[in-house]
Computed example of a mutant assay.
Amino acid sequence: MSEQKADSSRPEEMMKFTEGMQVEVTTDDEGFEGAWFAATIIEASVEDKHLIEYKTLTNDDDTEFLREDICACHIRPCLPETIIVDGFKVMGEVDAYYNEGWGIRVIAELKANGGSLQG
Rank of each mutant, 00 (worst) to 15 (best):
M1F: 00
Q4D: 06
Q4M: 09
D7W: 06
D7V: 03
D7A: 10
S8W: 09
S9I: 04
E12K: 04
E13C: 09
M14N: 13
M15C: 11
M15K: 13
M15Y: 10
M15L: 14
K16W: 00
F17L: 07
T18R: 07
E19T: 14
G20Q: 12
G20F: 07
M21P: 00
M21A: 07
M21W: 06
M21E: 04
Q22H: 14
Q22D: 09
Q22G: 04
T26R: 09
T27W: 10
D28L: 13
G31S: 06
G31R: 09
F32S: 09
G34M: 05
G34Q: 09
A35N: 09
A35T: 10
W36Y: 12
W36T: 00
F37R: 01
T40V: 11
I41C: 04
I41N: 02
E43K: 15
E43H: 14
A44T: 00
S45K: 07
S45C: 03
V46F: 12
E47N: 14
K49A: 04
L51H: 08
L51V: 08
I52Y: 03
K55H: 10
T56P: 00
T58R: 15
D60W: 10
T63G: 06
T63I: 10
T63S: 14
F65E: 03
F65M: 08
L66D: 01
E68R: 15
E68W: 15
I70A: 02
A72H: 06
H74C: 11
I75S: 01
I75M: 05
R76D: 02
P77A: 06
C78W: 03
L79R: 14
P80C: 05
P80M: 09
T82A: 12
I84V: 11
I84A: 13
V85K: 15
V85T: 15
V85N: 15
V85H: 15
D86K: 13
D86E: 05
D86S: 08
G87H: 00
G87P: 06
F88H: 12
F88N: 05
F88D: 01
V90A: 05
M91H: 11
V94K: 07
D95S: 03
A96P: 00
A96F: 03
Y98S: 10
G103A: 01
A108V: 03
E109A: 08
L110C: 02
L110H: 04
K111N: 05
A112S: 10
G114P: 10
G114Y: 06
L117H: 05
L117P: 01
Q118D: 08
